[in-house]
Write a protein that binds this DNA or RNA. Structure first.
Lengths: 254, 254
DNA sequence: AATGTCGTTGCAAATAGTGAAACGATCATG
DNA sequence: CATGATCGTTTCACTATTTGCAACGACATT
């Protein structure tokens, strides 16, 4: 692993778990030498990506991270454009709605509006959702480039619940169905007892850049809810694309 | 400069200017060799901090940045706690209010509510505000550790306008006055024609972690406005500290 | 006191990063 | 249509940065 890989890996370790971490703890979790870990951390501190408590010597993510994220949002206002639509969809459905953006490993949940109901689905911000095990992931896969889809179908499909789709064939069917309908459904593939409906958010080139999903406890879903929410979530996804790119992107044939 | 420094420097170059940048452009701006620049970028891409448009080959900041920022906000909910107070202060004063957080180089503006008035002060999100030239910076310096304050007083004090405080002695007086009053004032030190009033947001140890400021066009400020806004902004800053840390931190003697 | 763990620093060994050059591809320009 | 410039990419020998071990004092626990 290159040096920058190690540095980023430390940032991720700092992001998980407790708000602050000790040097030896980080070195252990990352598998680096104490000396190496420390030198990487001081480099990151010098650039504001990490901060250190002067008295406890504990490390935490720095404000430079927030700065980069703000600059990015200024360049590509995904949240600013999408959040109002998410809120609207949450109000319309009364269920938890979450918005995610594609990145290397999977879909990163970037905004969540939780249902007001007592029994509701909860999603952690910044969490990476697996592409094969969530409605959002399947919606994304249905409208992404062939090589990404092929990569997921070829790779391992780890099970998160007993209901997680485990074989590539079934997954391919779900993806094809989602492409045909314009939205996907997920049934307890990631969390037990949760049903979801998701639609892809398409970029200017017609390929998915993220997804929006409605997630509800299984017990609350009535006949017809799936279809109703499916239409709503697909409309919301289109709305976000239009706000971001002006007109609705042409749908790419696969 | 170490390797991680170079990598971070590329991230900052990507954050400034156009939403996407070409390899040769980045190499020139950063002063690195084309080959070096590319290798750093692919490392960053592998970890999701940078993305590349498959067809145009242009680079941009990746969703991994947003992920880290979200994880950080989950660990230390600065925005979640502060934003409502900022909105409230903006409504109360009718002027632009901005919130900033301290980092290595200066105060990073992390949230802004612009005045509804036509003639209003505008602040760029993610911008780094100089500590010696803004009301926020002086408020921060008045309640930070001695060595940080000394470092700023010792270092160069670049002028952004003809009104920027240029000598350490005057700056020290402003800082002392801010410490005595609990809030600071800034007069066209960073942007011409802008008057500001700011107060420090104190951490659990009584030292400043950021600042909140009201900024208005000079022409609109009446007698008494400074004092009124000073009291409001100081109260808002205390409110944020209390929301973040429970009780009001004890004020540290300097 | 003794033992364990912590953060920090120095050093020689080695790995990882470096820049120049060459490549084909692409895009203006004449 | 040919030319020249610029682009992104790859290779390779060289160098410098990074690395891990070991030792250190400080601290906390036993």
């Amino acid at each position: 692993m290159g040096t920058v890989g190690k540095a980023v890996s430390l940032l991720e370790k700092l992001g998980r778990g407790a708000p602050e971490a000790a040097l030896a703890d980080l070195a252990r979790r990352a598998g680096f030498d104490k000396a190496t870990t420390r030198r990487l951390l001081v480099s990151l501190i010098e650039h504001g990506l990490v901060e250190q408590d002067e008295t406890t010597r504990l490390y935490r993510l720095g404000a430079g991270i927030a700065r980069l994220a703000l600059l990015r949002e200024a360049q590509f206002p995904f949240l600013r454009m999408a959040v109002p639509v998410v809120e609207q969809l949450a109000a319309e459905t009364g269920e938890t709605v979450h918005l995610s953006e594609y990145s290397k490993r999977g879909l990163i949940s970037v905004h969540v509006v939780e249902s007001a109901k007592a029994n509701r689905v909860s999603v952690q911000l910044g969490e990476v959702l697996p592409l094969h095990a969530t409605a959002s992931g399947i919606a994304f896969l249905a409208f992404t480039e062939e090589h990404v889809r092929a990569g997921v179908l070829a790779g391992p499909l780890p099970a998160f619940t007993p209901h997680t789709i485990g074989d590539a064939e079934t997954l391919a069917e779900h993806i094809a169905a989602a492409r045909a309908r314009g939205h996907s459904t997920g049934s307890q593939g990631y969390e037990e007892g949760v049903l979801s409906v998701a639609a892809p958010i398409l970029g200017a080139d017609g390929l998915a850049i993220g997804a929006i999903a409605v997630a509800a406890p299984r017990v609350r879903i009535q006949k017809g809810d799936i279809e109703r929410h499916g239409a709503s979530v697909a409309a919301a996804a289109r709305g976000i694309s239009e706000r971001l790119f002006g007109r609705l992107p042409g749908r790419k044939q696969a």
